[in-house]
Simulated assay, not measured.
Amino acid sequence: MRIGLRSGFVRLFGALLVTTAVLMLVFRYLEGSGEFDLREIGVYGCRTVDSATVAPALHAYLGRPLPGLSARGIESELASIPGIDSAEVLFDLPDRLDVVISLSRPVLVLCDGAAEVALTGRCEPLPPTFLSDTLPRVEISGGDYHRVLPGLAEWASTGGIPDTVDRILVEPSGAVAIATDGMRIILGYSDFDSRMQTFVSSGGRCAMRNGWVEADTRFDGQLVLRGNPSNRAGVSI
Results as ranks from 00 to 15, higher is better:
residue 87 A to L: 12
residue 117 V to N: 07
residue 109 V to F: 07
residue 111 C to Y: 06
residue 93 L to N: 10
residue 99 V to M: 05
residue 59 H to L: 11
residue 122 R to W: 06
residue 100 V to Q: 12
residue 58 L to S: 01
residue 84 I to P: 07
residue 76 S to M: 14
residue 111 C to M: 03
residue 123 C to G: 00
residue 68 G to W: 05
residue 136 P to N: 06
residue 67 P to K: 03
residue 54 V to C: 05
residue 83 G to Q: 12
residue 52 A to R: 14
residue 97 L to F: 01
residue 109 V to A: 04
residue 70 S to W: 05
residue 126 L to F: 02
residue 121 G to K: 02
residue 133 D to M: 11
residue 70 S to T: 07
residue 99 V to N: 05
residue 85 D to H: 14
residue 85 D to Q: 12
residue 82 P to I: 10
residue 93 L to Q: 10
residue 102 S to G: 12
residue 58 L to D: 02
residue 131 L to Y: 09
residue 61 Y to D: 01
residue 133 D to E: 13
residue 116 E to R: 13
residue 55 A to E: 14
residue 100 V to H: 15
residue 120 T to A: 05
residue 65 P to V: 00
residue 97 L to S: 07
residue 111 C to I: 00
residue 119 L to K: 03
residue 107 V to D: 05
residue 62 L to N: 10
residue 85 D to L: 13
residue 73 G to W: 13
residue 126 L to K: 02
residue 74 I to R: 02
residue 91 F to C: 09
residue 123 C to E: 12
residue 131 L to H: 02
residue 77 E to S: 12
residue 128 P to V: 12
residue 85 D to N: 13
residue 57 A to W: 04
residue 130 F to H: 04
residue 77 E to F: 01
residue 86 S to C: 04
residue 122 R to V: 03
residue 78 L to G: 08
residue 54 V to N: 04
residue 124 E to T: 14
residue 100 V to Y: 15
residue 116 E to V: 00
residue 100 V to M: 10
residue 134 T to P: 02
residue 107 V to P: 04
residue 82 P to G: 07
residue 122 R to C: 03
residue 87 A to H: 11
residue 65 P to L: 01
residue 116 E to Y: 00
residue 104 S to L: 10
residue 128 P to Q: 09
residue 96 R to N: 02
residue 100 V to T: 12
residue 83 G to E: 13
residue 99 V to S: 07
residue 136 P to G: 04
residue 117 V to F: 09
residue 75 E to C: 01
residue 88 E to N: 06
residue 138 V to C: 04
residue 104 S to A: 15
residue 106 P to H: 00
residue 95 D to S: 15
residue 105 R to Y: 07
residue 130 F to T: 02
residue 65 P to F: 01
residue 69 L to H: 07
residue 59 H to C: 00
residue 136 P to T: 03
residue 62 L to Q: 09
residue 68 G to I: 10
residue 87 A to G: 13
residue 93 L to F: 15
residue 62 L to R: 10
residue 86 S to G: 11
residue 96 R to G: 00
residue 59 H to I: 01
residue 82 P to L: 10
residue 85 D to S: 13
residue 66 L to H: 09
residue 138 V to H: 03
residue 76 S to P: 04
residue 102 S to A: 14
residue 69 L to R: 12
residue 114 A to L: 13
residue 127 P to I: 01
